[in-house]
Simulated scan of single mutants.
Amino acid sequence: MAHLEQLPRDLVDELRVTDARPLSGGDSANAFRLDTPDGPLFAKTMPGSPVGVLPVEAAGLEALRAVAPEEVRVPRVHHVSDAALVLEWIEEGSGGPDRAAERSMGIGLAAVHGARAPHFGWLSPELPERIGSVPVDLTPTNDWSDFLLHRRIEPLLREAVDSGNLDPAASALLAELAPRAAELAGPSEPPSLLHGDLWAGNRVVDRSGANWLIDPSSFYGHREYDLAMMQLFGGFGRECFAAYDDAHPLADGWHDRVPWYQLPPLLIHAIRFGGGYGGAVMRALRRLS
């Protein structure tokens, strides 16, 4: 019962929480399993986080849930505020995804990316403009390659250099690549709803083998952004990408564009964690040169 004191009082009262048990995992949030009369729920709190981080995540979950087919599931939002986010509980499986789960993941993500999206940029003007805890410019536009270069890659690279976590030579390498921004972003496509942070840790396979998407940093963008992130740390099998390509064929040369699309997450990791991520940014830039 002592852990209930770590949760906002309005949340406890609204959901009639009887107990809260801390969960492991996460580098910036506290996670809990909540016991309620209606069954278990998942809660996340982020003490000291910027205003709007959890409401932005909730909006991404609700947007994904609205278009997700049966092949991928998205947890229902039960409560959201700047202090806490409470979601449907997922009974996670003990093993990794099998081939059927990989195929379902590819088919489901293709359907999410194929849903109609209005522009490149924010989900709503009422939400703070950020990807996770990082402020970004999400003003709507129809020019994706310009958006990716000038509003995502360039400012993150400057911040990474200024933080001392990236070799200043990266600025010259990016300047050489900038005139090719449209080519590097690939053929023009309609905007897609993106998960925005789709590494393997944000895909959960439950006890029945079903895929779930969690922890999004959603915005409207080019679908290769998600696919590149999926390859950054591994965890998605060949069957997943093959099923995706069958359901929603990718443009020729998309593999060659992966380093360009991996620059934003690599730069964010360089800013936040330093270590080898600055070197990974340099390798990506040199591969593209």
Rank of each mutant, 00 (worst) to 15 (best):
E102P: 00
E239Q: 14
V86Y: 05
N202D: 10
R238L: 14
A100F: 08
E62I: 06
T18Q: 13
F241D: 01
A100Y: 01
P264K: 04
P190N: 12
L288F: 11
A111F: 05
P155I: 07
R99Y: 00
R180T: 10
E71I: 03
P191N: 08
G201H: 08
P135W: 03
E154S: 13
D167A: 14
R180W: 01
V204P: 01
L285G: 07
A172D: 14
L127A: 01
P155V: 10
A43L: 04
L157H: 03
R9K: 13
G209R: 13
W122V: 02
P168T: 14
V77N: 07
A43M: 05
L194M: 02
L193V: 04
G26N: 12
D256Q: 15
I271A: 02
P118H: 13
F273C: 05
D246T: 14
H255V: 08
W144D: 00
P155C: 12
L285C: 11
F219W: 12
A178P: 06
Q231H: 09
H255K: 14
G221S: 11
V136E: 03
L198H: 05
F233N: 03
R158W: 01
R223W: 09
E159F: 01
A68V: 02
R223N: 13
A182T: 15
G221Y: 02
G201M: 04
C240I: 03
L267N: 08
L34Q: 03
A29D: 10
A182H: 09
Q262W: 08
V51Q: 14
R180A: 13
R283W: 00
L34Y: 05
V281I: 10
L41M: 14
P259M: 12
P128F: 06
A59V: 11
R158F: 00
D206K: 10
E129W: 06
L285E: 05
K44R: 15
Q6D: 15
E71C: 05
A181K: 03
A58P: 02
E91T: 14
G52S: 08
P249N: 11
F273R: 13
G39N: 04
P135D: 05
L156D: 01
V205L: 01
D10V: 10
V205H: 04
P97K: 01
A172G: 09
D27P: 00
G114V: 06
E239V: 06
P191L: 09
R158S: 09
A210R: 14
G95R: 15
R116T: 11
S28P: 00
H119D: 07
F233E: 03
W254I: 12
S218K: 00
A170T: 04
V86R: 02
H222V: 14
L232N: 03
G278C: 10
G95T: 15
E70L: 08
A169F: 02
F120V: 07
A2N: 13
P118K: 10
T139G: 12
S94P: 02
P37T: 05
V161C: 11
R151N: 12
L194H: 00
T141M: 07
R203W: 07
K44L: 14
D146M: 07
L232F: 07
E88V: 10
F241Y: 15
